[in-house]
Design a protein around this nucleic acid. Structure first.
Lengths: 232, 232
DNA sequence: TGCATTTTATTTGTCGACAAGATTCCGGCG
DNA sequence: CGCCGGAATCTTGTCGACAAATAAAATGCA
């Protein structure tokens, strides 16, 4: 399990970002399950560095709500609050709408290219029936739209929501190995077109429909999941 | 300047919060001016602790955008981006509206009391012509409304926006020693009433008017400030 | 004198160590 | 047999020290 100190040399100051990115990915991909404790010493050994940079990465993750830390007690991966999912859905819908509207107004040519690129990747994931790829590229697609809207306040909240959503979806795909509804591809295309012709109202409407679609999907999974849980 | 080690004994784990709160206040109150560098060693001496907790507090502040940190270089108090104030105004208006609407729907009796308490404090500050007290209690007033709305996603973004606004207002009050328009008191009362009777649409409308009022005020200050700057 | 380069000094990022809380384990007592 | 309290163990928060990276100063050269 442990290794003979064979760690790649890393530049000064890169350690925190490394462990931050890695931990973040593992949390969002549910490699680290919600509620599971995080041991600083263990991480330090794993990454071959001292506890200090690990600690800083954890503080950052805590700031983004991906990790919960009780004073003098172990920090753990943030739980998913199933009881208040409606607040999540509400915020998600609003952010979908607002960012898409703003993208229609403020986007520049380069933005459309970036958005199309992510959509292509999403399309490829759909063809390959790669559920996890779909989840990731769907997130990137909407993140690119938010970027095009050029409002950092919205973007930061939206990114947080998208990540939380990624975690949620991943939870269900992991359990049931399911697929996202194919309508989503077409909806993405429609959104791109609406952004391109700068039709704000259409963007708003499409974003709302799109959000509803995804929410319905999640609720569908959730209902199924509850049935199984009860069955046991 | 330096002291003979006479620091109040503090509990283990309280150090970070102490320095975090203190720094945060000083940043928002413009005691620490935007763009001014922050010296970790100096802070460590000032608070009578090692650099480690200082560092953690700075990382937290950086996560909230109150501090900007370049790798291997000095961290400094975050600048105010005057060129993109419109994104700030846009987000502020939306958050005013959304949180007030949600408060109308989800508030409970205790919430109204808290809101009224902050409004009373705001009123007192107005009577005392205490501009800084007005700024602070205005922020708390709206924060309490957001809390009553019970959507942590909105609340966290709104708090960040309110703090940024506090810094902006403080900037102008510091320069001109001015007063907020008295209409605000009445607007607050109207908002409280609308929340109490759970009139969502009225809340929305009042929140928008209120946001416009404050934005106009800030822009008014900003225009004046530009004139003075040019005059020099 | 002015510019480029080396040297010094300052500041940050990381480390290992240690002590305060917390947790677990264990034995004593009711 | 179960509950309580203390000892041992583990984890976290904080510290001082050191080395890399940067900034500042000093030196050399044109």
């Amino acid at each position: 399990m442990t290794e003979a100190g064979g760690f790649p040399e890393r530049k000064r100051g890169s350690g925190v970002k490394l462990v931050y990115d890695q931990l973040r990915d593992e949390i969002l991909d549910l490699v680290l399950l919600p509620g599971s404790p995080i041991d600083e010493v263990q991480l330090a050994e794993r990454f071959g560095m001292s506890r200090t940079p690990i600690r800083e990465a954890l503080v950052r993750l805590s700031g983004e709500g991906l990790v919960e830390t009780l004073p003098n007690r172990s920090t753990m991966v943030a739980n998913i609050d199933f009881l208040n999912l409606h607040t999540f859905f509400d915020a998600m819908t609003l952010m979908y709408r607002v960012t898409t509207r703003l993208a229609a107004t403020y986007h520049q040519p380069a933005d459309l290219e970036a958005i199309r690129e992510h959509q292509a990747r999403f399309d490829a994931a759909v063809s390959a029936q790669d559920a996890l790829g779909m989840i990731a590229s769907n997130r990137d697609f909407h993140a690119a739209i938010a970027e095009a809207g050029r409002n950092p306040y919205y973007t930061s909240l939206f990114l947080r929501i998208l990540d939380e959503g990624r975690r949620l979806l991943r939870l269900y795909y992991q359990s049931f190995n399911d697929r996202l509804p194919p309508e989503i591809v077409g909806e993405h295309e429609a959104i791109i077109d609406a952004i391109k012709v700068r039709d704000v109202d259409l963007c708003d409407q499409l974003a709302k429909t799109h959000a509803d679609q995804i929410i319905r999907q999640i609720q569908h999974f959730l209902a199924r999941d509850e049935r199984q849980t009860v069955a046991l």
